[in-house]
């Protein structure tokens, strides 16, 4: 059992293996499915969350290491899409299938947390989008 602080709330995660990646704890144990599985090897970026404000790849982040830290997933930004990054995504009609967008959004949030703005954010989001939403992603990010 691990106590995790996710989106400002404490959750008890009933999992025995402390090496279980945070991704699967979020998704399978806690039912927080906004964070996506794409590759499991830190190449695609779909699983990105922020931990203590920094972007991290939940697919390789052990649950035991996440204890005592502040985890933010895409669900934690806002449910009414009022977060500036969510607004930028909607204003530019960015998502197509949308599967990679949680990770894109959270990496952008992490970059903003680190003090980046506009085009400075772009290198911080080297993720994969198979639909090819990059044109609109760039437009959205450049407004932030």
């Amino acid at each position: 059992m691990f106590t995790l602080n996710i989106n400002g709330q404490n959750y008890q995660a009933n999992v025995t293996d402390g090496n279980t990646p945070l991704l699967w704890v979020l998704r399978d144990v806690l039912g927080l499915t906004g964070t996506k599985y794409g590759c499991g090897i830190e190449v695609c970026g779909a699983c990105t969350v922020t931990i203590d404000g920094q972007r991290e790849h939940a697919c390789v982040y052990n649950v035991s290491s996440a204890v005592g830290k502040k985890i933010v997933t895409v669900e934690g930004l806002s449910t009414d899409n009022s977060h500036p990054v969510q607004k930028a995504w909607i204003n530019n009609q960015v998502p197509q299938c949308g599967y990679c967008q949680s990770g894109m959004i959270m990496a952008t949030v992490g970059a903003i947390n680190a003090g980046h703005h506009g085009s400075e954010i772009l290198p911080e989001v080297p993720h994969l989008c198979v639909c090819g939403t990059y044109s609109r992603l760039k437009k959205a990010i450049q407004t932030l």
């Binding site: 895409v74 669900e75 899409n81 998502p95 949308g98 949680s102 959004i105």
Partner: peptide, 12 residues
């Protein structure tokens, strides 16, 4: 479909 795809609520 886009609003649900920016807050994790879209269910794939």
């Amino acid at each position: 479909d886009i609003p649900s795809k920016v807050n994790g609520s879209a269910i794939y």
